[in-house]
Amino acid sequence: MSVDMVFKIAAIGIIVAVLNQLLIRAGREDQAMMTALAGLVVVLLMMIQEIRILFDTVKSTFGI
């Protein structure tokens, strides 16, 4: 589960970086910014689930 997640995040990061570079070279700075923002939101939504899992596991393990 974690390995898939790591590769997914890395792939999204690389794709966003490449798109960003391309759009900046093409002179579309505003769209490049939007792409970066969209990637960030997608990964943040994935991250929220992960953090919830971490909190649940820590709570059940240590009995907090």
Binding site: M1, S2, V3, M5, V6, I9, A10, I12, G13, I14, V16, A17, N20, Q21, A36, G39, L40, V43, L44, M46, M47, E50, I51, I53, L54, T57
Partner: peptide, 16 residues
């Protein structure tokens, strides 16, 4: 290229 994704990777690794 994008430093924020490194942060997400480290959070994922912590969880995993």
């Amino acid at each position: 290229y994008r430093a924020e994704y490194a942060l997400f990777l480290s959070i994922t690794i912590t969880v995993g």
